[in-house]
């Protein structure tokens, strides 16, 4: 336990990712990249890489409603909702944490939309007449 505490002591409250002499020289040469040396800015970028897949699937239409896993979609929607709120509570309130809130909000919304698509599809299988009338009405 003492070993773990000693290991973590260096990182608690420390947002700088690389602070060696070579990294310092590199970020002094490229000041625009210094944004990425802060872990609160780097983390939402990694989270975008996870939520970009369902968003691109919705936009390109490569995921039909039959293939949506309802349990997975609802758990991801719940995660996104909780994390959107959590990102507004934690202490360093900078652009990075705002980006995290936006990213999680987008994830919650796209998975919520997936749940909606899945439930509408299931209802259309049960009661095709109902959906046909609405389709005519919207047309």
């Amino acid at each position: 336990m003492q070993f773990v505490r000693k290991l973590l002591e260096k990182y608690i409250g420390n947002t700088v990712v690389f602070n060696g002499p070579r990294a310092t020289a590199f970020f002094a040469r490229n000041p625009k990249l210094e944004f990425l040396n802060n872990v609160t800015n780097l983390a939402p970028m990694m989270k975008w890489s996870l939520s970009i897949v369902p968003i691109s699937q919705i936009i390109s239409g490569t995921k039909p409603p039959q293939t949506i896993d309802l349990a997975q979609a609802s758990s991801l929607c719940a995660t996104g909702t909780v994390w959107t709120y959590y990102a507004t509570l934690i202490q360093p309130q900078n652009n990075g944490t705002r980006l995290l809130a936006i990213c999680n909000g987008a994830m919650a919304m796209c998975h919520g939309y997936n749940i909606y698509r899945k439930t509408t599809h299931e209802r259309s299988i049960k009661n095709p007449l109902h959906v046909n009338t609405t389709a005519v009405a919207t047309d």
């Binding site: 409250g13 780097l42 983390a43 890489s49 202490q91 360093p92």
Partner: peptide
Amino acid sequence: STLAAYSLIFMRWSIAIYPP
């Protein structure tokens, strides 16, 4: 591998914020 990198960064992130 994306998830592995994501996890590595969030291990740092989880104790960099306040409260840890």
